[in-house]
Design a protein around this nucleic acid. Structure first.
Lengths: 105, 105
DNA sequence: GCAACGTGTCGGGGATAGTTGACATGTCGG
DNA sequence: CCGACATGTCAACTATCCCCGACACGTTGC
């Protein structure tokens, strides 16, 4: 179920699409221009994002506007949360180490 | 570069492996027992995690212990962070709505 | 109407992922 | 030493992903 979201994020082009849409809605063609690959390729990436409910699309005339739907990303945050303590601990350890190794100058 | 990490997380079996390892190091066979698939399949999933530097393995006698290496997960957290405001805003909106619709009782 | 535009989808081809059974390697217990 | 164990890796098959060119469909402007 949350599987679709993690799968959507597995591709750098799709992550970039979400970043672009974070600044506001954009048309399909406008989005496609930002990439080196062909327009159909981008269209398929958008389909994957649609399937994961990460974007919402709305036709306006002969254009189609895509809008970010960030809610499903919360699932990623929720999954990640129990692991955060690991790198936080590590960060604290490093800070302690620096403090100990280089008392001052 | 951080591509490997997102790719590693795209598979539910690999996410489950990381969850299991969050409780402490485990042997390869012990991990494999937790899944319905064959032992070699789990071994290859572990290889993907190794490639993403999400686990560290250490042979002890004829066993091999796998240990979580959570640091690369921070990349996911960093990527996700700019999006958090979206569902937080949404959560606040919902809270406001509840407060307005149901003043008190 | 009709040509040009914006976009989705289909067919296909190459690459990679996921799974398994069989085999190879190294390690422990007697 | 030798059989049993724990594990990694290989060969092979299938499924899925990623990308493209080509086509189809609706919309706009004249």
């Amino acid at each position: 179920m949350s599987d679709d979201v993690f799968l959507a994020l597995a591709n750098p082009a799709r992550r970039r699409l979400l970043e672009l849409l974070a600044d506001g809605p954009r048309t399909a063609g406008d989005l496609a221009e930002q990439f080196d690959m062909s327009r159909p390729a981008v269209a398929e990436h958008l389909q994957v994002l649609r399937r994961a409910a990460l974007v919402h699309d709305e036709p306006v005339g002969r254009r189609r506007y895509y809008r970010l739907e960030a809610a499903p990303l919360k699932q990623v945050g929720d999954w990640l949360h129990p692991f955060e303590r690991f790198w936080r601990e590590r960060l604290r350890d490093m800070a302690d180490l620096v403090e100990k190794e280089i008392p001052d100058d």
